[in-house]
């Protein structure tokens, strides 16, 4: 199975008035063709920033560390070293939209209010797929139909404010897919929607991903959603991936105390009477990143003197899985 996207040692810092802050540190993950990677974490854990780095969409104040490697395999089989591209170059523009599509949390804000849905879709199609205006329009209508909008030939000439929230999110998906990307990054696409519409959109995305054979990165703070849509999962906390592996195994047997905490916080039918146990405490601000293991300030199993002092390395407790926690790294602990 070919890796579509491999990210290694991704570290991102921002220059701010208060000095350098580092919201993402040493993050590695990969996405395979036709599979979905779920990226889970609380807000501020660095999920969105990491994926924006892959698209080179970070603002000018952001610095990507020099040992970061981001490799993308294009549709024509060419390997692209994304970290080496100039963010204003033609090569990165070919990647954006044409190879990697992106969906955002707020569909209303991601459309420009003064152009029709069609205008913005046709623009993307003509940039990447089909320069002919009339044929681009055909593709756009077909795509709107594909995401389940009724009467797409009329909808295409409507403005975003003329649609309902669910319709807009579908249109947003159509917009991202219209240029035919091989990888879709979905940044909390269902968070702003009603529960019933949320389920519909999830179904649609799973279906589209399967039919089009795309790879997908699905960002959410909801581990329950991950279980429905992603084959692989990576759990992020304060800018590092604390645990990753196949979704089913991670959910059945979470290794990291943070993953365990997240799972315990999901309401479930068999534990209706039991109190939900959220992870205690608040997520620290990125400017006050704890030393050592970032999670030790909230961890009930923290080992005194060790977790607060030294950053755990990533180890593989089982084949195909990885965790960053001193509890599972006896060899490293005794070496310490």
């Amino acid at each position: 199975m070919g890796d579509l996207l491999t990210v290694e040692n991704l570290t991102i810092s921002f220059r701010t008035d208060e000095g350098l802050i580092t919201p993402v540190q040493d993050v590695s993950f990969s996405v395979q063709k036709g599979r979905t990677l779920g990226l889970v974490g609380e807000s501020g854990s660095g999920k969105s920033v990491s994926t924006k780095a892959v698209m080179r969409l970070l603002p000018g104040s952001a610095v990507i560390a020099p040992d970061t490697r981001m490799h993308y395999t294009a549709k024509d089989g060419q390997r692209v070293e994304v970290e080496k591209l100039d963010p204003r170059s033609r090569a990165i523009r070919r990647l954006r939209g044409g190879e990697i599509g992106m969906i955002f949390q707020e569909p209303m804000a991601s459309f420009s209010p003064v152009y029709t849905i069609g205008n913005q879709m046709i623009e993307a199609i003509r940039l990447h797929r089909e320069p002919n205006k009339r044929q681009a329009r055909e593709i756009a209508i077909a795509m709107l139909e594909r995401v389940g909008l009724s009467d797409p030939a009329t909808r295409i000439d409507q403005y975003p404010h003329e649609m309902s929230g669910g319709m807009r999110q579908r249109a947003m998906i159509a917009l991202a897919l219209s240029a035919g990307p091989a990888l879709l990054i979905a940044d909390e696409p269902t968070t702003a929607l009603d529960v019933t519409i949320q389920a519909q959109v999830l179904d649609l995305m799973r279906e589209l991903q399967r039919d089009l054979g795309m790879g997908m990165i699905f960002i959410t703070h909801d581990l329950g959603v991950i279980a429905q849509i992603a084959q692989d999962v990576a759990v992020m906390y304060l800018g590092t991936i604390v645990e990753r592996g196949p979704t089913a195994e991670v959910i059945r047997d979470p290794k990291h105390p943070y993953t365990q905490g997240l799972l315990a916080a999901i309401p479930s039918l068999d534990r209706l009477n039991a109190r939900m146990t959220p992870v205690p405490g608040d997520i620290p601000s990125p400017t006050e990143r704890p030393t050592g293991c970032p999670f030790h300030t909230r961890c009930v199993h923290a080992i005194a003197g060790l977790c607060s002092a030294r950053t755990p390395r990533e180890i593989a407790p089982e084949p195909g899985r990885a965790v960053r926690c001193w509890l599972h790294d006896e060899a490293g602990r005794s070496a310490a």
Binding site: R96, G97, S110, P113, E123
Partner: peptide, 11 residues
């Protein structure tokens, strides 16, 4: 966000 979104489409 609409500007970021358009940039993410390769405009």
């Amino acid at each position: 966000l609409s500007v970021t979104a358009a940039r993410a489409r390769g405009v």
